[in-house]
Write a protein that binds this DNA or RNA. Structure first.
Lengths: 232, 232
DNA sequence: CGCGTTTTTGATCTAACTCAAGCTTTGTGG
DNA sequence: CCACAAAGCTTGAGTTAGATCAAAAACGCG
C-alpha cells in the first residue's frame, strides 16, 4: 500500500508545500496538504484531479474521495483549521484558495450561497460513498464507481461514456473497500459482458443502462459467468 | 429490514410532520423529516437521539448516522433545501430549528462560527464512518462503534463506560455494514473475553484500552476463540 | 397471558480475500 | 537509445470471514 513517504520521495520539488495564495498549479504526486497540517483556507479545484486520503498509524490507507473541477477541498478543516485528510494531485491541477477569514467574515465577492450549496453536495457524496460501502457486492461497487465518475463528467459537460481514469486500480480498490484483484476481475467481467471496454486507464461505457441496473443490484454482473458454470 | 412504512404505521399521532418552528419535542418513532421532503432549515438536537437513514427504491435501508445532543441534522439539505435522508427519533428528543434564512443571511444571534465548526465536525465523522466501512473486520467495526459512542458520551460529560444504546442490533448492523447475527456474535465474543458486559441494550465497557486496540486492528477480538480452536 | 419484536446461537455456504506468479507499462541511468 | 528496475495490471488456485438460513429464547406490550 502506498504511503505518504513513497509519494514525497519521488515527486519533483514543485509545489513542495501549500504556499498557495490564490491561484496555482500543482503537478501529479504533489501534495496540496497533508493530514495534520494547519490550512489557511478551503481549496477549490479548477481543473485536474485530486485524491483525498487518510493513513492510520499502522500504515493503512483509506481514500475518502476523488475530486474534480468545481470541488471544494479541505472542508473537514472547518472544525479547527487542521485537516485530518491528505490531498495529493493525480493530474496536473489548477487550484485556488478561499481563506478562512473570507469564509467566516463573508468577504468581498465570496459567493456564500454557493459555498453552502457545495457543502451540502459534499455531504451527500459522502453519504453515497458510505451507502455503497455498506453491504454491497463487488460488482455493484464497481458499477457505482464508474457511474459516479461518468455522471461527474457529464455534469461538467464532458463525455460520460469515454474517459481516462486518473487513479490506479489500487486507488479504486481502496476507495471501494475491495482488494485490487477483485477490482480487476470485476472489470474484466464487465468487459466480457460487453458493458464496458477497457484499455488500462481508458474506459468506454458501452451499455450505461445495464451498468446502472447492476449498480442498483437488479442484476448481477457475474450472471453470465454463473450461467455458463451452472450449464456445465 | 425495517422500512418507512413500519415505523409510520405504529407511531402515535404526535409530531406527525415537521411543523417544528423553534423548539419542540418528538417521541420515539416520530419522524423529524423524510427523504425527499423540503426542509425549512437545519435542525439541532438538544436532547435524545435520532437515526439518519436512506432507503433505496428496492427497499434497502442504509443508516448514515446516529445523532445525539448538540448535533446538526439535515445538513445535506443545504444543497437545495431537500434532504435525501430520513430522520427518525429513537428516544424522546428535544429539537430546535435554524431556518435557512438565518443561515444564509446570518441572523440575529446565530452563532455562525459555531455552525461552520459543526459542519467540519460532521464531515469528519462521516469520513471516519467511511474509513471504518472500508476493509475492516467485524470485530474492529463493532469495537469502533462502541468507542465512538462512548467518546460521544464523554464529550457531553456523561459516563462513557456504562450506558444504554438507543438503537436495535439491526440498526447497529446496518450502520456497520454487517449482518445482525454477526453483530450479536462479535458482541458475545467481547463479553467472553471480559472486555464488555452486556444486558440487552445496556452496555458496560470493562477494558477500554483493549477495546481501542481491537478497533485499531492491533489485536483480533476472536484471538482467544481461535487459540482455543487451534489448541484442539 | 399470548403475540410480535428483538436478540441469540448453530450449521452451512459463498463472495471476496490472500497468496503466487506472469505480463505490461513507465521511469531511470548508463 | 537501450536495459533494467519498479510500478501497475491481470489471472489462477485455495482459504476464510462473514452472509444466509433456520430456529429457539428473552423481552415487552396490549
Amino acid at each position: 500500500m502506498n504511503n505518504v513517504v513513497n509519494y514525497s520521495g519521488k515527486r519533483k520539488p514543485t509545489g513542495q508545500r501549500s504556499a498557495i495564495s490564490h491561484n496555482s498549479v500543482i503537478q501529479p504526486h504533489d501534495y496540496l496538504f497533508r493530514m495534520g497540517e494547519k490550512l489557511d483556507g478551503i481549496y477549490m479545484l479548477n481543473s485536474g484531479s485530486v485524491k483525498l486520503f487518510r493513513t492510520t498509524e499502522s500504515g493503512e490507507e483509506y481514500i475518502t474521495g476523488f475530486c474534480a473541477s468545481g470541488d471544494l477541498i479541505g472542508l473537514d478543516a472547518l472544525v479547527d483549521g487542521v485537516s485530518r485528510t491528505s490531498a495529493v494531485a493525480l493530474d496536473t491541477s489548477n487550484i485556488s484558495m478561499i481563506p478562512f477569514n473570507t469564509i467566516v467574515r463573508g468577504g468581498d465577492r465570496f459567493d456564500y450561497q454557493k459555498f453552502i450549496h457545495q457543502i451540502g453536495a459534499t455531504l451527500n457524496r459522502e453519504n453515497d460513498h458510505t451507502m455503497m460501502l455498506s453491504q454491497r457486492t463487488a460488482d455493484r461497487r464497481l458499477a457505482w464507481f464508474l457511474i459516479e465518475y461518468a455522471d461527474g463528467l457529464a455534469s461538467r459537460g464532458l463525455c460520460p461514456t469515454e474517459f481516462s481514469l486518473p487513479m490506479t486500480r489500487t486507488d479504486i480498490a481502496i476507495f471501494l473497500g475491495l482488494a485490487v484483484e477483485t477490482v480487476c476481475r470485476e472489470l474484466a467481467t464487465l468487459c466480457d459482458e460487453g458493458i464496458v471496454k477497457k484499455n488500462r486507464r481508458r474506459i468506454e461505457i458501452l451499455d450505461m443502462a445495464r451498468l446502472r441496473s447492476i449498480s442498483r443490484g437488479e442484476v448481477c454482473a457475474d450472471k453470465l459467468a454463473k450461467e455458463i458454470r451452472s450449464a456445465a
